[in-house]
């Protein structure tokens, strides 16, 4: 990656599109991470992220059969059964 690309995203020049993106709230360090990859690597990474999120969603699906509600997700489960 060209050195000026790193500088562009880490220290956006005033008035640049990167500065506007940063001010909008975009984390440009993530963008820079993505740009270090090839397009193939980026899409493969996206696919892995999709799988991981889907696995988390399935793992934490409420047992009562009610619709998914993020506020009801409890990442700590306690097994109170004996023996």
């Amino acid at each position: 990656m060209k050195k000026d690309t790193e500088a562009y995203f880490l220290n956006p020049p005033p008035g640049s599109a990167a500065a506007r993106a940063r001010d909008f709230g975009i984390d440009l360090t993530l963008t820079l991470q993505r740009l270090r990859l090839t397009p193939d690597e980026r899409v493969r990474q996206l696919q892995r992220a999709m799988f991981e999120i889907e696995n988390m969603r399935v793992d934490h699906k409420p047992q009562d059969g009610k619709a998914d509600d993020p506020s009801r997700v409890d990442l700590t489960t306690v097994d109170t059964t004996s023996g």
Partner: peptide, 14 residues
């Protein structure tokens, strides 16, 4: 859009 425009700007410069 903001991120896409930043990506385009640096791509044009490069």
């Amino acid at each position: 859009l903001p991120e896409l425009e930043a990506l385009r700007e640096i791509a044009e410069e490069n």
